[in-house]
Amino acid sequence: MAGNFKDNIKNSISNFKNWEQKSHAEDWILYPENLSGRLSLDEVALSDGELYTVLTSKAAKGRKGSIVAVIKGTRSETVIENLFKINRDLRIRVKEVTLDMAGSMKLIAKKCFPNAVQVIDRFHVQKLATEALQDIRIRYRWEAIEQENILLAEAKEKKLKPEIEIFENGDTRKQLLARSRYLLYKTREKWTASQKQRAKILFSEYTDMEKAYNLADGLRKIYNQKIQKSVAMLKLAHWFKEVEESGFKAFSVLMKTIMNHYSDILNYFDQRSTNASAESFNAKIKNFRLQLRGVRDKSFFLFRLSKLFA
């Protein structure tokens, strides 16, 4: 009965069979009328990890009129070929495109929207800083797990009760490093009382963790300040110096990554534009996908998505 009901919706009630984009929907759908001066370019997995490139309009604020294009895959040649189906006179009116640091995305934006300023999304940069910080925590956690395993094995061999260190907040070393994950994502001002206590213990036991946290938090604070591009350049220069002095390999890699995309990252400080609308739209796609318990028919899924957001 459920299958018949779905088929009835698809074939009769929804008007899917008359959808003008039905024949090519699995490969691309375009809504040129939704183009605006400011766009977001991102990727999303529709089903089984299969990626689609999604172009959305910031003007629609995640509501109807958001979708400009949904194109199968992330290969720049394929995406460019399909976006070129949109009239060039419309494309050259685009003034800004926010995107991540992927070379393919930058090429798509450059070729399809030649007059647009490219803005690297701040949250992609901050995410790399957080991942660099978490890498250090994870490394120490594995060491703590191994240390506890050795203690348990020795105690078992000697038929003694294992003497596992417990900190003042009740955490073992292994638990301290596991439970610190969430507080490292937050600013100090947003820590709860228990997180403040845990952070105090963590930073006293692992002083380089505090140094790494301050680096990640320092980058976040640069972004959070309403400053001009010239001031941001100066503050980033100071941050680069702190990274070099820290000796952390992961942060050094991040610093080089920022330098490789320097001008597009600094463009954020002109209008403070982010890819948040694209991330929000991607979250809506994922939520819609969950409600449907997966995507079996991609064309029909994209049809329903279009009805809501195009």
Rank of each mutant, 00 (worst) to 15 (best):
L254D: 05
L219E: 02
Q195A: 08
R188K: 15
Q134K: 01
L160H: 10
K111F: 05
L236W: 09
K110H: 15
R272D: 13
A69K: 04
T78F: 02
D42G: 00
L152S: 05
Q197R: 08
V295T: 12
S40R: 02
R272T: 10
G103N: 03
K72R: 07
M259A: 15
K85T: 11
M259N: 11
K229V: 13
V243K: 04
L55V: 01
D270H: 05
N34G: 03
R137I: 09
N18T: 04
N214P: 13
A45S: 07
R91M: 00
V94K: 01
Y213A: 09
R63Y: 03
S180L: 11
L160D: 09
L160Y: 12
L202N: 07
L234D: 15
T78H: 01
S23L: 13
N15K: 15
I285M: 12
K174M: 12
L99Y: 09
E205W: 04
S204W: 06
R139S: 13
L266A: 07
G294A: 08
K229A: 10
E131W: 09
D264P: 08
V44L: 00
L51F: 13
G3A: 10
K159G: 11
E279N: 02
P162V: 04
R91Q: 02
I138W: 05
K196I: 10
V68S: 00
H24Q: 14
A60K: 10
M259F: 10
A278V: 14
P114K: 04
Q225D: 08
V44I: 04
L30T: 00
L308Q: 12
I265C: 12
L83W: 03
Q228K: 10
V44M: 02
V253R: 08
T53K: 04
G49H: 06
I227F: 06
N282H: 05
W191I: 05
V68M: 01
G37L: 10
L292M: 13
D270T: 05
Q118N: 12
I80T: 05
I80E: 04
I227P: 07
F301G: 01
